[in-house]
Design a protein around this nucleic acid. Structure first.
Lengths: 219, 219
DNA sequence: TTCATGCTTCGGTCGTAATCGAAACATCAC
DNA sequence: GTGATGTTTCGATTACGACCGAAGCATGAA
């Protein structure tokens, strides 16, 4: 039943937890309780439901239980609902700096979204490293390019997850790069210290990192 | 708030109404009450909420009030949730003939989906009438082809709605053709008597219609 | 062992919303 | 006008689920 899934997302506390997990990290029960502003027992109950409904998967590590989104699909569905919430005005607009930063660059599940994510995909297409629109493919030239960045393409291709995937961006209404390659690129960007994950989903670029990023990908 | 939207979809009665509207037709309050198996006052209340939440728009015509999905986005979000419901096993599988028929060809908002919808888009690409993946475009050759089918391309292009749009198919997990052209093609198919809408979202092809369809689009 | 931390289970309270019958309202047909 | 059909409002019932405090369980640290 479709309503079962929607009802799970339809509770404010659970929706807050899910959005907190949109950056792809795994969070503990306590962290999620805080993110949703509810007491621990309440959070525990919600998480049990989300796990039972297969929206989240849990992983035990010592005294902690880490939860993360069970699949990239979940994140995409939530992005889609965000878009609708925006359009129907069911969202608080608050155009603060936080919101602005979210639009510039944020983390969507495990890859980069926002203006900069869309620009990245555009640049990769323009440089001939990727081709195709919805179904993206890495070109021979692209394979070399990504390998130079330290990405093990053979390993990505062996994995179960699609290497490239176009993900619709809710703030830009255009696609950015998802899939295993999207994840690897975000990793590369963070490892080089060009940007760091902030406490929220916002991705903060350093001034020099921004320049290096633009140069590396020929933005 | 994202949870506001999800909660609207999260009630079984409302979810049934929304799925009943997925074929793009506008239905009356009585019809929707029956689709959701609830009494009239109950349905009326739900519909008021859906309208207030901007998921539906109403249109008064005489004694009737017709409701339809407010936007193609809504339909897409619901398809996405269906995919998740399927994956998480929150859906009754029942592999009856009805289900099989749904997978073969059905109506998604106002265009054709299912195996046949996916095959149609493939064929149009292969024949060079359309090009691109996610962002589709009609080729010069395609313009002639669609005009021959009696579709007024100039009119479509003038409209506010995108002419071509790729819509992810939940049963096939591949794209089919949406947008104004997708709608026009479905219309053409129905007008020629190749297929007719059944009581549900299922699209039933006649044997001869099926042959004519395959020939016309070079499947 | 003992203590601290993280999480879950239990039990009870409270709100909210889904539900329907009856009655009111609106529109058309005659 | 009267009657038929379609829809909404009202009122009352009911049920489900969100919530938290307290107590219990599990794991790791000292």
């Amino acid at each position: 039943m479709i309503s079962t899934v929607a009802a799970l997302i339809g509770d404010p506390a659970r929706a807050n937890m899910l959005t907190a997990l949109m950056d792809g990290r795994a969070l503990t029960v306590t962290e999620l309780a805080s993110a949703a502003s509810v007491a621990l027992p309440t959070a525990s109950g919600h998480l049990a439901k989300l796990e039972q409904g297969r929206l989240l998967v849990a992983q035990k590590q010592g005294r902690h239980r880490y939860f993360r989104l069970s699949d990239a699909d979940i994140g995409e569905a939530i992005e889609k609902l965000m878009g609708i919430a925006q359009r129907t005005g069911a969202v608080r607009v608050r155009t603060g700096p936080r919101n602005q930063a979210m639009r510039t660059a944020r983390i969507c599940y495990d890859h980069m979204a926002g203006e900069r994510g869309v620009a990245l995909l555009d640049a990769l297409r323009r440089s001939g490293h990727l081709e195709g629109e919805e179904r993206l493919a890495v070109t021979a030239d692209g394979r070399r390019f990504f390998a130079d960045l330290g990405i093990d393409m053979a390993k990505l291709e062996k994995g179960r997850r699609p290497v490239c995937r176009a993900c619709l961006d809710w703030s830009e209404r255009r696609s950015h790069l998802a899939g295993a390659l999207g994840k690897a690129l975000l990793q590369a960007i963070v490892e080089r210290g060009w940007a760091r994950r902030s406490e929220s989903r916002v991705l903060v670029f350093t001034p020099s990192g921004e320049r290096a990023f633009a140069e590396a990908f020929a933005l």
